[in-house]
Each structure stands twice: as C-alpha cells, then as structure tokens.
C-alpha cells in the first residue's frame, strides 16, 4: 500500500520563483524516504507542502487515500519534527507532548497513556515535568520526536532534524531515528542536505536539484548507478571524480593517454570515477599522474593528483605506500567507470 502519493506537484511563489517544478514520488507504507539535495533545491518546500504549511500551486498530494491539498496541517494526520525542535518553551515536556492531543479533544486517560508510551519509547520519562530550556539538545530532539509520535500519524515528516546537534550526537540520533521508525512501522519523509544521513537512513533516496527530481532509488542503486553527473558528484564522499574523456574504438582517451576500454559507446564523454575505486598501480599500465597534495584522514589517505590539465582524487588505505617521487600510475576496473553525456549530464549505459 502507498501511504503518500505526490503527483506532479509544483510550487510557484507569488514573486514568480519556481521552487518545485513538477515532482512525482510515492512513499510506501513503513518506508523511510529521504529527500536530499543542496540548499534551495526545493526539498524543504516539498516537505512543507506535504505538511500543509505551504500551499500547493499545482498537482495533488494524496495521503492515505485522500487528497489533502486543501486540508489544514492539523487535519492531515501528519507529524513534523523541526530543525530547531520548535518546542513550546513555557510548557513542560508533558504538556508539549499532550498539546496536540488536547486540541483534538482526546480523552485525558488516552492522552496520559500515549504520552507515557512515547516517553518510555524515547527514554524521556524522567524529564516529563521539566521545561525544554532545562534539557540538552539531544533531549530536546527526543521531545520533538515524542510530540510527533503521540499523534500516531500516517506519516512522519523530518525537516533536517539533526542539523543543530554536534557531530557525535548526530550519529547517535540518526541511528535512533532509524530504529524508532522501523519499530513504529510508520512511513516517513526525512529532509537533509547531508548525503551521509541520506545514505545511512534511507530505504529510498530522492535526489533533488533545482526543484526537480534527479533520481529516485535505494542508497545502493544511487551509489552504484547515478543517473546524472549531479547525483554522481553529490552522493559519495569524497565526491566522484569527473574527467573529460573520449571513447574511440576500444580505447578510452584522457589527456593524451589511452587505455583499453570494452564499452560500445563512442565519442566525447564525461567520465566518472569514485576515489575509492582507483588504485595506485605498481607498473605504469594505468593513467600517469603527478601527486599534488596528500590528506591523511587516519584510516584512509586522500591523494590529490594532476592528470594533464585535470585534477583527480584517490582514496586509499593509509597503510599503503605512496611513491616518493610523486609520480603514480592510476589503475581502475572498466566496470567502475561511469559515462555521462557531456551536454545533458545524463548517464550513458551503453
């Protein structure tokens, strides 16, 4: 079953700016879908349209089988977690959790039951009578999630919920969100600009750019087969190398160097190669390049090198040796090469 259907949705602001240019995506039951993209790509606008905080200019949003375009946020059966938590500062945690239920005229014993259930789930039971200002960032984040959980919504909407936390806590909370969502089996949309969050959390990722969907797929699919150069360079860290190359006959020509290449496509291409899929070759059978900078990251080492007029980055185990003269030969498997059209940026599978 499909929880949420976004059908050809557009958002045009009164000043003519087009934030979302016709997006269609479905969220299945119990699925966690991550909207990822750079700032200004329309991901938050899209989420806010689902929440009912922004009006829909064109298209349809269908939640649990009914079109909700014209419904107030409170009537949509959604729950949202905001980046800055948006807890009511003057209310205790308990009242924060209960406020939405009280407005909905839920009976008091039902409210108590749901609040306690959520508090146990999130381990915030001991804070129930504190004010948000007496809590740490991580605890506030839990309360914000608790406020979403007590509503038993059809879908959770997360708007960059971890951006205000420090790196360590962010990793921990990321894991908790995932566990929680699995346990509740409630569909969720999670908006982030952080591709690591997207990769680790998502059942499916929706990559957005300039108000349009670039690609939808599981993290593995998107990593393995990026549909465009944008997706290729956005997902993965460090980003994929993009090199101008030419496929002629059975060879790949880069900067005057030629390598055997068994693909059927012919002509000028943009070639993508992940830094972690390239090795320094002992012989000089690969692409010859010259090291410019080394970056040690502990477990791995990033090797920046010049290949003719183009820059490449390799990522390799920090234990592996680097030639002292700075001259390297780069090897890679032809299967790891992604080809993209130079003009449209679209993937070439041939």
């Amino acid at each position: 079953m499909t929880t949420l259907r976004i059908k050809n949705v557009k958002k045009v602001y009164p000043n003519g700016a087009e934030a979302v240019k016709g997006v269609s995506v479905d969220v299945e039951d119990g699925e966690l879908v991550v909207f990822v993209g750079p700032s200004g790509c329309g991901k938050s606008t899209l989420l806010r349209m689902v929440a009912g905080l922004e009006s829909v200019t064109e298209g349809e949003i269908e939640l649990a089988g009914r079109v909700v375009n014209d419904l107030e946020p409170a009537d949509r059966n959604i729950a949202m977690v905001f980046q800055n938590y948006a807890l009511y500062p003057h209310m205790s945690v308990r009242k924060n959790l209960a406020y939405g239920l009280r407005n909905r005229k839920t009976p008091q014993n039902e409210i108590d039951a749901r609040v306690n259930e959520a508090a146990d789930l999130l381990q915030i039971a001991e804070f129930l009578d504190r004010k948000p200002s007496q809590l740490s960032g991580g605890q506030r984040q839990r309360v914000a999630m608790g406020r979403a959980i007590v509503r038993h919504p059809a879908i959770f909407l997360f708007d960059e919920p971890l951006s205000n936390l420090d790196a360590k806590l962010r990793n921990q909370m990321r894991l908790e969100i995932k566990k929680l969502q699995r346990r509740l089996e409630t569909a969720a949309i999670y908006v982030t600009h952080d591709q690591v969050e997207a990769m680790t959390l998502a059942d499916r990722i929706v990559v957005l750019n300039g108000g349009q969907i670039e690609q939808v797929g599981t993290p593995a699919e998107i990593y393995a087969n990026p549909a465009t150069t944008f997706v290729a360079s956005f997902i993965g860290a460090p980003p994929m190398n993009m090199l101008e190359a030419n496929v002629t006959g059975d060879a790949l020509e880069i900067e005057g160097q030629s390598l055997p290449f068994p693909r059927s496509h012919r002509g000028p291409v943009r070639m993508g190669l992940r830094p972690e899929r390239m090795q320094i070759n002992g012989s000089d059978a690969g692409l010859n390049a010259e090291i410019t900078v080394l970056e040690d990251l502990g477990a791995t080492r990033l090797i920046h090198a010049r290949l003719g007029n183009q820059e490449v980055v390799l990522s390799q185990d920090a234990d592996l040796p680097v030639p002292s003269d700075g001259k390297i030969s780069i090897a890679f498997r032809p299967d790891d090469v992604h080809l993209f059209d130079r003009d449209s940026g679209r993937r070439i599978d041939a």
């Binding site: 929440a51 905080l53 946020p73 409170a74 949202m80 800055n84 948006a86 807890l87 009511y88 406020r147």
Partner: peptide, 13 residues
C-alpha cells in the same frame, strides 16, 4: 521563531 507557529498549526491550534 516561525516554527513555533507551524508546530502549533500542526498541533491543531
């Protein structure tokens, strides 16, 4: 913060 208004709207206020 505007989010407070939005949270309240979602909470049915």
């Amino acid at each position: 913060p505007n989010e407070l208004l939005e949270a309240a709207r979602i909470d049915g206020a």
